[in-house]
Amino acid sequence: MTTRTCAIIGTGAIAGAHAEAIAALPDRARLVGVVDVRPDRAAAFAATWDVPTYPTAADLLDAQRPDLVHLCTPPGTHLPLALECLAAGASPVVEKPPVLSLAEFDRLRAAEADAGVPVATVFQHRFGSGAVRLRRLLAEGLLGRPLVASAHTLWFRDDDYFAVPWRGRWDVEGGGPTMGHGIHQFDLLLSILGPWSSVTALAERQARPTDTEDVSAALVRFRSGAVATVVNSLVSPRQTSQLRFDFEHATVDLEHLYGYTNANWSLTAGPDVTSAWESDPADVPSGHTAQFTAVLDALDAGEAPPVSTADTRVTMEFVAAVYASSFTGRTVARGEITEGDPFYASMAGTGAPWLRQPAR
Rank of each mutant, 00 (worst) to 15 (best):
M1Q: 11
T2K: 14
T5R: 09
I9S: 02
I9A: 09
T11E: 06
T11M: 07
I14L: 14
A15N: 05
A23C: 03
A24G: 15
A24F: 02
L25K: 07
R28S: 15
R28I: 14
V37E: 06
V37Y: 00
R38K: 14
R41N: 12
F45M: 08
F45K: 04
A46I: 08
A46M: 06
D50L: 06
V51M: 03
Y54N: 01
P55E: 07
D59Y: 06
L71T: 05
C72E: 12
C72H: 09
P75K: 01
P75V: 13
L79F: 04
L79E: 03
L81P: 01
E84P: 00
E84Q: 15
C85E: 05
A88N: 10
G89S: 11
A90E: 07
S91W: 00
E95F: 10
P97F: 10
P98K: 02
L100A: 08
E104D: 15
D106C: 04
D106I: 04
D106M: 04
L108E: 01
R126P: 08
R136F: 01
R136A: 14
L143H: 09
P146E: 14
L147T: 07
A149V: 13
A149K: 00
A151D: 05
L154M: 13
F156H: 14
D158N: 09
F162N: 06
V164P: 05
P165L: 04
V172Q: 06
G175M: 07
T178K: 02
M179Y: 12
G180S: 11
Q185C: 11
F186H: 11
D187Y: 10
L188N: 10
W196S: 01
W196I: 02
S198I: 06
S198E: 13
V199A: 09
L202H: 14
A203E: 07
E204F: 12
E204N: 13
T210S: 09
T210I: 14
D214W: 03
L219T: 13
V220L: 12
F222Q: 04
R223C: 04
V227T: 15
V227N: 11
A228E: 06
V231S: 05
V231P: 02
N232Q: 13
S233H: 07
V235I: 14
S241F: 08
Q242F: 15
L243G: 01
D246A: 13
F247D: 00
F247K: 01
A250T: 02
Y260M: 03
T261V: 12
N262P: 05
S266P: 03
S266L: 08
S266W: 08
T274M: 10
S275H: 10
A276M: 05
V284G: 00
V284E: 10
S286L: 11
S286F: 05
G287I: 12
G287D: 15
G287E: 12
T293F: 01
T293V: 11
V295L: 15
A301F: 07
G302L: 13
E303R: 15
P305R: 04
P306S: 06
V307W: 00
A310W: 07
T312S: 10
V314F: 09
V319R: 00
V319G: 03
Y323M: 11
S325R: 00
S325I: 07
T328D: 01
T328E: 02
G329W: 00
A333E: 15
A333V: 02
R334Y: 08
R334D: 02
E339Y: 07
Y344M: 01
A345W: 02
A345I: 03
S346P: 05
A348F: 06
G351R: 03
P358Y: 04
A359W: 15
